[in-house]
């Protein structure tokens, strides 16, 4: 009884404080190709949903381009709209 596990009510927030950066600005990528499905997989979680900026760290301008490209890829059947185990 003495050594029962300490149960956290909420998960301990591990703050990975590595500086997030926008990979598009850093690498000078200007155009995100909607036909390049496996490049877009990096910005989609395993349910096929677009990852938020706070996780990927991309700037607003390129986050919109990524979202636009993912939606176009979904339209022509390269990316699923919803799935359970994408990766």
């Amino acid at each position: 009884m003495a050594n029962e596990q300490i149960q956290y009510v909420t998960a301990p927030k591990v703050d990975d404080n590595r500086k997030k950066y926008c990979r598009f600005k850093k690498n000078g990528i200007k155009y995100i190709d909607y036909k390049d499905a496996n490049f877009l997989l990096k910005f989609v979680n395993d349910q096929g949903k677009v990852l938020p900026r706070r996780l990927t760290g991309t700037s607003l301008k390129f986050q919109r381009k990524v979202a636009q490209a993912v939606k176009r890829a979904r339209h022509i059947g390269l990316l699923p709209y919803v799935t359970d185990s994408l990766k």
Binding site: K30, I76, G77
Partner: peptide, 15 residues
């Protein structure tokens, strides 16, 4: 089955 037409801007044509 599906079609998608995109207008290309200068970054897209360069790509």
């Amino acid at each position: 089955l599906r079609f998608l037409t995109i207008a290309l801007d200068k970054h897209a044509t360069a790509y």
